[in-house]
């Protein structure tokens, strides 16, 4: 894996290289080079199995982090290429031509995070939330609690326990609650 990472680094100037395990490496790459690098890995370095495409919302940095996780079945190793894209203009080059399942991931990411992949088949079709009009539901600023309270009819006789408080009583009944914990809970 080290040789491949070094080769990839000299070719595409990787950042944030982390050897999470012997057989799992994460690295960040420029948006412009990402699909080129993924294609190179598939065609020349044996990363033929596309494992996963995912997204993390780093709202505090104003960025979305896309992840292309590739597996090399011969080396039995994984490489996760991370691409940071602007949260205010979330658009990425489509990779649907590389593996058959990628358009599904891109369709989901369009719905869940609002990231556009121009040219990706059926990218505008609903995936799991039909008729959704709110902000994309996997973004950090979408508040599930507020949405549930706003959308669903409240049941008058329902008793609600604060999960953290309930667990504290059950698991650590004799442990005093510190001021910091109280502050954290709030």
């Amino acid at each position: 894996m080290k040789t491949i990472i070094e080769k990839l680094n000299s070719k595409y100037n990787l950042q944030e290289i982390v050897y999470q395990r012997d057989n799992l490496v994460f690295a960040a790459i420029n948006k412009e080079n990402a699909i080129d690098a993924v294609t190179y890995l598939r065609d020349y370095e044996g990363f033929s199995h596309f494992v996963l495409m995912s997204c993390v919302d780093w709202i505090e940095d104003g960025k979305f982090q896309l992840l292309y996780l590739l597996n090399n079945p011969t080396l039995k190793s994984d490489l996760g290429l991370k691409v940071y894209i602007d949260r205010n203009n979330p658009e990425m080059v489509s990779a649907h031509h590389l593996w058959k399942q990628i358009w599904t991931y891109q369709r989901e990411l369009k719905e869940a995070f609002g990231i556009n992949f121009p040219g990706s088949p059926r990218v505008d079709e609903n995936f799991v939330v039909e008729g959704w009009t709110d902000i994309p539901h996997m973004r950090r600023d979408f508040d599930t609690h507020e949405y549930a309270q706003k959308t669903y009819f409240p049941r008058g006789d329902r008793k609600t326990n604060d999960p953290a408080e309930y667990m504290r009583k059950k698991l650590y009944p004799n442990q005093p609650i510190t001021a910091k914990q109280r502050k954290d809970d709030k």
Binding site: V18, Q20, R21, L24, F26, V51, L52, L69, D78, G80, A164, M167, R168, L171, Y172, Q181
Partner: peptide
């Protein structure tokens, strides 16, 4: 303590 368990920034698969 599972109620105060914080994990440093990281990622894995």
């Amino acid at each position: 303590n599972v109620l105060n368990w914080k994990i440093a920034k990281g990622e894995t698969y």
